[in-house]
Design a protein around this nucleic acid. Sequence first.
DNA 1: TAGATTGTTAATCGATTAACAATC
DNA 2: TAGATTGTTAATCGATTAACAATC
Lengths: 221, 221
Amino acid sequence: MHLDFGVTGGASLTPMKGNLPPATVARLPLYLRALIDLAAGQSTCSSEELAECTGVNPAQVRKDLSYLEAAGVRGVGYRVATLRDQLRAALGLTRSYRVAIAGAGNLGRALTMYPGFMDSGFEIVALFDVDPERIGDEINSIPVSPLGALEDVVRDRGAAIGIIATPAEAAQEVADRFVAAGVQSILNFAPAILKVKEGVVVRRVDLSTELQILAYYQGAN
Amino acid sequence: MHLDFGVTGGASLTPMKGNLPPATVARLPLYLRALIDLAAGQSTCSSEELAECTGVNPAQVRKDLSYLEAAGVRGVGYRVATLRDQLRAALGLTRSYRVAIAGAGNLGRALTMYPGFMDSGFEIVALFDVDPERIGDEINSIPVSPLGALEDVVRDRGAAIGIIATPAEAAQEVADRFVAAGVQSILNFAPAILKVKEGVVVRRVDLSTELQILAYYQGAN
DNA sequence: TAGATTGTTAATCGATTAACAATC
DNA sequence: TAGATTGTTAATCGATTAACAATC
């Protein structure tokens, strides 16, 4: 929404194929998932089919995919395996990412055990909490470390992504410390707007906000 | 992204002040939260301040708020309490909503206990799972009901909103049954695209996708 | 009155999509 | 060749934002 999209100053290392429009980036994971589902059944698929299973307009699908190295064959469609690999490459999913989670409450623990993360190459390597009762617990064989040790542990385990699942009050401090420890991207579940230095990308997932938006469309009746 | 924004056919009951642009609707909860935080400290606040604490451009703030009944006073700003109430009214948060959750795994349980929901007037009234081991458990004093009883329980407890926290395979069936039971809005955490009849609003929260988007901006390096 | 800040206009920018030529 | 489907253009639509008159 109000992200600084990385690009710090002039000539920065931009992702593979030059910069993709943000709206396109947000759809690539949808296509990727659809292709993984399709992979077993067919070797080729059309923009029409991809549109069908992602809920995106077919012209949109073609436009999005045209930003990648030409992946389609006119009259035939896209090769499922090839396109899948190109999408992975474009998203930077050819390597794995180590992830640290701050907050070992219900949400933090659920995220630690979330199977979808591992499936797409994200490995949870650290979990933090302030509560002495929780420190030392093992969630999914990740021990809960004290928040005081955040910088050391994050650096030690080489986490590149931080997830904030703390109360709102703690979110900014945790973010600052994640960044100080070298984290480059943050996924923030706390209902707070974070200020971070340029070059650090923040995405916010606000669960209450999602329900409030649904409430609006329910029509206040 | 690809939502049917409700409006079924011609003359439907639209929310209060005519239809707001979707992008505006998505920001109203941000302003609301900022105002609630501000409420203790000051009785009035400027678009500049609201911009500051939501990360939105000040002109955007004014434009968004101008869709509401005129809330601001030139030269002074917005009355915090008044604007807060107007935002609540616009979002349909003057009443509470009953919510059913399908899937009592880690995520479903975390959502059931998520404090932010109750705070904004959403009450979890039912929780479902297929696993006989889980059925009968109480999470936050909500008993886990068998998925087979979904329609009956949803109707019985008057849930208007359904949350899907099941595996992707089960998501469409659960959605169909939620809708059959009268649910009008669905928040879908399963990595699946749901097909629902017009008039039912679906929002998707895809946790893996969020990380994949971060991976992209990390620059694949 | 002077200062502040809204509400609104108009320009700009980015995203979406229909249509179709290119081409397998 | 005929049929299919991409890649791309151009039109449209919606969202953002600077600027400023209105006005408290």
